[in-house]
């Protein structure tokens, strides 16, 4: 490590591991470009509906299937004459927020479950991980579909359902990391220095978990967005006139022979979003764990 090779001199700040990681991330062109794309998409999702002269749900029977760049509709209109650009921005809003919130749900459950199992160890660990094993084997998509069919689809339920599915892998990662961290010398040193259990978890275990967790979070968000769009495609996700990327693509696929733009623009937005998250996730992994390259 560079910070060991160069002893700190007065006036010169040492390079921490975080600095190193950030520098590596910045050097990764795919990841920085993706971050830019993601910022642009987010800005578009936030501001386009505010600036657009058309509300996302305004039906206009005389403006059906207007091609892009005509009559002031930048991306054209759909089968009900609704402005595609506004709807695309709304769809991005919905998909991105489902991605973030559901990932947050899975993060909270997964980290709590995994860290507890890993830190306590022994029989508790064994029991908690058997639960995860059992849940892992469930065909979850079916349960999500059952949930949607049973209780009607509302956005809150989608958050909870998808978040509840995605925490399993997170808990496994966190447990594995905690188990190996527990054995490390610096934890022993902290214990020798008289730090309590809670202090060790808060000061030494959790900060060291952040790396792998951050990587997995950036890879979970696209998975969640994809899961939601599957549900929407099957007619079980977000309900009209609200839109998500999934409902837009599904509607666009039906009309694609008449109006190609209805499929192409939402599909591009979806692909760009998923690709951006995946590249950032890969970049983060490479940056945080240089051994893996």
């Amino acid at each position: 490590m560079t910070d060991l090779a160069a002893p700190p001199r007065p006036g010169i700040r040492g390079r921490s591991l975080t600095d190193d990681a950030l520098a590596r991330l910045r050097a990764n062109r795919a990841a920085t470009f993706s971050l830019g794309v993601l910022v642009l998409l987010t800005l578009f999702a936030i501001f386009a509906p505010l600036l657009s002269p058309w509300p996302y749900d305004q039906v206009n029977k005389s403006h059906v299937w207007v091609p892009p760049l005509t009559e002031g509709h930048l991306l054209g209109t759909d089968a009900l004459g609704r402005d595609l650009m506004t709807r695309l921005a709304m769809g991005l809003r919905v998909s991105l927020s489902i991605g973030l919130v559901a990932t947050l749900v899975s993060l909270v459950i997964g980290v709590a479950w995994g860290a507890t199992a890993g830190y306590l160890g022994g029989a508790v660990d064994e029991a908690m991980m058997r639960v995860v094993d059992v849940l892992y084997a469930l065909p979850f998509i079916f349960f999500v579909i059952l949930l949607m069919v049973a209780f009607g689809s509302n956005i809150l339920l989608i958050f909870v359902a998808i978040g509840a599915v995605e925490w399993l892998t997170m808990s496994r990662i966190v447990r594995g990391q905690t188990l190996s961290l527990k054995q490390k010398e610096f934890i022993e040193a902290a214990r020798a220095a008289g730090l309590g259990r809670l202090g060790i978890v808060a000061r030494h275990i959790i900060p060291n978990l952040l790396g792998p967790v951050a990587v997995y979070v950036t890879l979970t968000i696209p998975a969640v967005i994809l899961a939601e769009s599957f549900l929407s495609f099957l007619g079980l996700g977000v309900q009209p006139p609200m839109a998500s990327l999934g409902t837009l693509i599904s509607a666009g696929a039906q009309d694609m022979e008449m109006a190609w733009w209805l499929l192409v623009f939402p599909a591009l937005a979806m692909a760009a979003t998923l690709a951006a998250f995946n590249f950032i996730g890969d970049g983060l992994r490479d940056a945080l764990d240089p051994k893996d390259r």
């Binding site: 696209p222 599957f230 693509i249 696929a253 499929l263 599909a267 979806m270 692909a271 998923l274 690709a275």
Partner: peptide, 15 residues
């Protein structure tokens, strides 16, 4: 490979 991961089946199928 990136395309395969990022373009969902319900886009590739209609195309």
């Amino acid at each position: 490979a990136v395309l395969g991961v990022c373009v969902p089946t319900f886009v590739t199928a209609p195309l």
